[in-house]
Nucleic acid binder design. Structure first.
Lengths: 348, 348
DNA sequence: ATGAAAGCGCTAACAA
DNA sequence: TTGTTAGCGCTTTCAT
């Protein structure tokens, strides 16, 4: 029933306004000093025809799409929305837009999106997925467009990287627990394939050592960075090491899982067990009690990534020196951490 | 340091292979019966030059971008990821891709994305945002491309709509509580501007009436469909109506907020208060105890929307009759609902 | 089986 | 100030 009319073109507008397409183009772009009369005619024609310039044609001509590709691991992972949101905002105010690709933890899909976006001739690439094959990092360095890596540290950093001070962040978390009097603490780590997970494990160990805790007696269990892994880890950990009073988690999803596991094990948080996460994703505020955590500046990361790309595009002659930006993390004390319970309470 | 070479073009490939651009195009598209020799030459040139066809140029020529625009309300709202994910999957297997626009609950941003996507000449539009101005719905009907509305019911349905049986779903939830023996039940509704919220309120009222509960005595508080609104609603509700034993919530985010509010009010779930949500978003499984809810088939909605668009595009001559598809919802009993506590327990 | 040429809708020299 | 013209990279008749 609805007839879909083909969109009108710049030529339609030019004909109706009685001018050339070049004039229409100039008037619309605000270039030159057109006669008021001409402007009026063009504007009238544009309105009458409901004309909207085709960005496809414009992109072909200008060799610029004003689009950035953003590759993330998983759109359902609560870590990403804030990153995506601020990246999108920053891009939008600068006249760019973002196209998103979620790899769903599969390397071949990262390649798929890299190719798709390159074929679409995006002006720049932001890669915030940890699940990327080593060759892909190499490819990025020679990609036809500038790129920036976020929240991951490729072993060979040939592109600029924006990430958090993961080691310092988890140190903050660990020191918070130790400051609360906890001595029997444990760590639920993330998969060692995640660069952030290894950095955080190192930070945890360092903080423990500095506090004089014997590194060899500290339980470390590796989870999957998700709810399920955290829950399973907590059950095992609390069964094998019932005297643990504080758990430092690789990330918030793990911590939320640990909370569920602890509850199942009959532990009450924070009365007889303190739990601290890392990242400060939205769910951290939604669980009860709300999760104490160390926040990553996710919004800042997205904004910086976009601004970096725009800077590179605007300064094509500037030599390209890959740098690593490590943003500080921020302790946010909420409801899942408290003073270490008196020793007697458990040992009787 | 890195020189960014301009991408090679079909002309480069043609020259290197010693054939015409037409031949390259045909070989790559698998059209006609090229000599084996020609194919080999073209393939070799493509590899040597690392040639990737420009989708920009192709789109201009074919007047097809193989892209759908998907407009959602808020990428940080856990309702959307599953929808986006399945839509993306369905699109990808069909050779399309999805560009996303998140309106952040602002009507003018919906318009922005509608224009942006139209300018980009997407082949179809999926609108899954409730925050859309009335004119936008009208515009959709005459848009240059086919569209489908998901999870919202515009008052004048001029496009095909895919949604859930919200009324039936909340009825399931209410009946579940009543079946558990609850008689003092309440509802935390969503904003009346959301079509799903009014449908759910109606379903709740209907189920109560059918069970013989006096509609005039049933407390209904309106929240904002978010955590904060649910938390505030629970505090007020439990203060004003301390004898309530079961709360049916507009959606899961509200329910998670209600859980926090109930905890703050000293109520223990599900022992002396049952809470049930609606949607089955991921956080429902992450809170402890896990939230009982009624699931929307979000994945199915995304898949159906994409398939509908592809169908319309593939059958341009078929008359377009807007239809409304209402998917059934599914009760998922988890940990926040239980038998109504004995009356005496509260009144003493 | 392949090539020449036109054209998708736009912008940018260059002329006038 | 405005128009003419060429061309971005591709696909697709129409010839050969």
């Amino acid at each position: 029933m609805t007839e879909r009319a083909a969109p009108s073109t710049i030529r339609d507008v030019a004909n109706r306004a009685g001018v050339s397409t070049a004039t229409v183009s100039r008037v619309l772009a605000g270039i030159g000093h057109p006669k008021a009369e001409t402007v009026a005619a063009v504007v009238a024609a544009v309105e009458a025809l409901d004309y909207r310039p085709s960005s496809v044609a414009r992109s072909l001509r200008m060799k610029r799409t004003y689009t950035f590709g953003l590759i993330i691991t998983d759109i359902a992972n609560p870590f990403f929305p804030e990153l995506v949101k601020t990246a999108d905002d920053a891009a939008r105010v600068a006249g760019y837009s973002i196209v998103l690709g979620s790899t769903d933890y599969e390397e071949h899909r990262a390649v798929h999106y890299l190719e798709l976006m390159t074929d679409r001739r995006v002006d720049g690439l932001i890669v915030a997925s940890s699940q990327v094959a080593a060759e892909a990092w190499a490819w990025l360095a020679h990609a036809p467009v500038p790129s920036v890596v976020v929240n991951v540290e490729p072993t060979v950093a040939t592109t600029t990287v924006i990430t958090s001070d993961n080691e310092g962040g988890i140190r903050l978390a660990t020191e918070h627990l130790i400051g609360l009097g906890h001595r029997q603490i444990a760590h639920v780590a993330g998969p060692s394939s995640f660069t952030a997970a290894t950095a955080r494990l190192a930070g945890f160990r360092a903080a423990c050592a500095e506090a004089g805790l014997d590194p060899d007696t500290i339980p470390v269990i590796t989870g999957d960075g998700q709810f399920g892994g955290g829950e399973a880890a907590a059950r095992r950990l609390l069964a094998e090491h019932p005297d643990v009073t504080g758990i430092v988690c690789y990330n918030d999803m793990t911590a939320v899982g640990v909370l569920a596991g602890a509850r199942a094990a009959g532990r009450s948080v924070p009365a007889d067990l303190s739990v601290i996460g890392c990242d400060d994703i939205s769910v951290a505020s939604w669980v009860s009690p709300a999760l104490t955590t160390v926040a990553q500046q996710k919004g800042e990361m997205g904004r910086l990534a976009v601004e970096y790309l725009i800077h590179v595009l605007d300064n094509p002659d500037e030599p390209h020196v890959p740098e690593v930006v490590r943003l500080p993390m921020i302790l946010r004390v909420r409801g899942t951490t408290g003073p270490a319970p008196a020793t007697g309470a458990r040992s009787r």
